[in-house]
Write a protein that binds this DNA or RNA. Structure first.
Length: 434
RNA sequence: GUGGCCUUAGCUCAAUCGGCAGAGCAUCGGAUUGUGGCUCCGAAGGUUACGGGUUCGAGCCCCGUAGGCCACCCCA
């Protein structure tokens, strides 16, 4: 075991893994842009208060998972910062700071990058993980809720992941939720003697969480408990119905679950989670999001509605490999420059440099080893062509060997780049037909 | 933060009752001067995760720590 290893809950994305992430990030960005979202980047850390206020001081994310940064000399500086546990608070902070309420509303923003939570690691759960995030700030209407849910589902589909479902709920707003929460608390209080100890504690802190309990002893109670759906105010009920209607037109059939309660305080009205049906294990929430109509104001802006989602790229990658997707392969270099004289690395490097200047992906074999070894290495890494520099260099020529066809011919150095380009194009064409 | 299982070469894994740490793959080199994926030969690669303890002797038994996985908690 090496002396130094990646910190607990983090991992190196080796080339094969990184290739998968690059692909997912590319799909995410182009999809978001297609839907009219503009890429934005915010700092990986913010003032702790942004998260404490934005995400909610009594949430697990802030209470026990916030990655606080210790820096600076004075007590004032110490623990003033925290690594972002989620992207929304930072984006909303930027929205307020840069006066984006003066832009045409809603402002559509997208961000893909690492998030940090000091949680206990498990498969698919890391202390540093990647999220694809979109936020639409400044539109209270139900249509955009549907648009964003549909965007999330399309991402999974384009990534090659089938069978992703959306669970949908409305958790009300400031007008109706507090009353419902109190009612729920009272209802459970009357049955406190039937609650397991853990649930009894939650009753005091966050009664909504009881609905989410996986304790079998709770099943009967949960089924009988009053549901938020029956306690939405008229405005919330209307909004929720409209969201469902819009989704139906888009061909999206959500699974309604009045027990869907999300862990961040800022959510209002529409909340949803993406998950993979039939998947094993508990880390199968592939993404989630919702509406946060009070968040902008909470962070110092004018009252402004907003909605967005975060999708966990680590879990998408995990699900893809579990689904038996083809093993990720490190990208191959199609052209290798070899030489008859093992010592003459200068010529090989110079030729490769010329090819690269002409836009060709090429690698020079810079190891001092005989030609046979160089060819062996090129063949094993899957190169298509090998340029062999030998005596013909005196006549301004090199050999170009086609490793798959087994053919080889002399080419004028002056024509080399053009010749290679032409041959590679044939290879691509052939591969396309096969 | 709680509980359970696990950790031997870069990777996947062996090692009898507590008795000399091994194989395959990968890497590097050789198989007669400038021709490849196969084959053959060889080399290198280890503080058996780390630190203690028991023992004549520990990869193996005991304790602690770290890391991984699983179940909670929670979430992506």
């Amino acid at each position: 075991m090496p002396r130094y290893q990646a910190p607990r809950g983090t991992r190196d994305l080796l080339p094969a893994d990184r290739a998968v992430f690059l692909r997912l990030e590319g799909i995410a960005r182009s999809l978001a842009v297609r839907y009219g979202f503009s890429p934005i980047e915010t700092p990986l850390f913010e003032q702790s208060e942004v998260f404490e206020r934005g995400v909610g001081a009594v949430t697990d994310v802030v209470e026990k998972e916030l990655f606080r940064v210790q820096a600076g000399r004075g007590d004032q500086e110490r623990e003033r910062w925290a690594l972002r546990p989620e992207p929304t608070a930072g984006i909303v902070r930027a929205y307020v700071q840069h006066g984006m309420q003066t832009l045409p509303q809603p402002v559509r923003l997208t961000l893909t990058g690492p998030m940090f939570r000091y949680d206990r690691p498990q498969a698919g759960r890391y202390r540093q993980f990647w999220q694809f995030d979109v936020e639409a700030i400044g539109d209270a209407g139900p249509a955009i809720d549907a648009e964003i849910v549909e965007l999330g589902l399309r991402f999974y589909r384009e990534a090659g992941l089938d069978g992703v479902e959306v669970i949908l709920n409305s958790i009300g707003d400031a007008a109706c939720r507090p009353a419902y929460v109190e009612r729920l608390r009272a209802w459970f209080m009357e049955r406190e003697d039937r609650l397991p100890e853990l649930e009894r504690e939650r009753l005091g802190t966050n009664p909504l969480r009881l609905l989410d309990s996986k304790d079998e002893r709770m099943a009967e109670l949960i089924a009988a408990a009053p549901t938020i759906a029956d306690h939405l105010c008229a405005e919330c009920a209307t909004h929720f119905a409209a969201v469902r209607r819009h989704l139906e037109v888009l061909g999206v059939t959500p699974r309604l679950d009045p027990r869907l309660v999300r862990g961040l305080d800022y959510y209002t009205r529409t909340t949803f989670e993406f998950y993979r049906s039939g998947a094993e294990g508990q880390q199968q929430a592939l993404g989630g999001g919702g509406r946060y109509d009070g968040l902008v104001e909470l962070l110092g802006g004018k009252p402004t509605p907003g909605i967005g989602f975060g999708i966990g790229l680590d879990r998408v990658a995990l699900a893809l490999s579990a689904a038996g997707g083809s093993e990720p392969v490190a990208p191959r270099v199609p052209v290798v420059v070899a030489g008859a004289d093992p010592e003459d690395t200068v010529t090989r490097l110079a030729i490769a440099t010329r090819l690269r200047a002409a836009g060709i992906t090429a690698r020079a074999d810079l190891a001092v080893r005989k030609l046979g070894r160089q060819l062996e290495a090129a063949a094993r890494e899957g190169a298509h062509l090998v340029v062999i520099c030998g005596d013909e260099m005196a006549a301004g020529q090199v050999q170009v060997k086609d490793l798959e066809a087994g053919t080889q011919r002399r080419v004028e150095l002056a024509d080399l780049a053009r010749e290679i380009e032409r041959t590679l194009a044939q290879h691509r064409h052939g591969a396309g037909e096969a």
